[in-house]
């Protein structure tokens, strides 16, 4: 009592579909993972940049305060 050709074909189709789904899911997952690590990487770089900007900003503020010595109210 072998399974009929039709059933066999269906089974194969089932495997094919599952593989396809799996591949799509995997790739979406890869995209998601990529985005995750991209975000983390960006955060690191932005943090470094932000540090530099902060220091510069502070420096500017400091210099401004020095220059306007005494007449800060103006």
């Amino acid at each position: 009592m072998h399974a009929s050709e039709a059933v066999q074909q269906q089974l194969k189709d089932d495997w094919d579909n599952r593989e396809f789904e799996q591949i799509i899911a995997d790739n979406i997952k890869n995209i998601a993972n990529f985005l995750s690590s991209f975000e983390l990487s960006c955060r690191t770089k932005l943090a470094t940049l932000s540090d530099k900007l902060n220091l510069l900003e502070r420096k500017v503020e400091f210099l401004e305060a020095r220059v306007t010595k005494g007449d800060t109210l103006s």
């Binding site: 998601a32 993972n33 990529f34 995750s36 690590s37 983390l40 990487s41 690191t44």
Partner: peptide, 17 residues
Amino acid sequence: IPDDLPDIEARALPLLY
């Protein structure tokens, strides 16, 4: 996408699929 921080944190996943 370099992110060369020491890995001392639990699984950091901003996006989970």
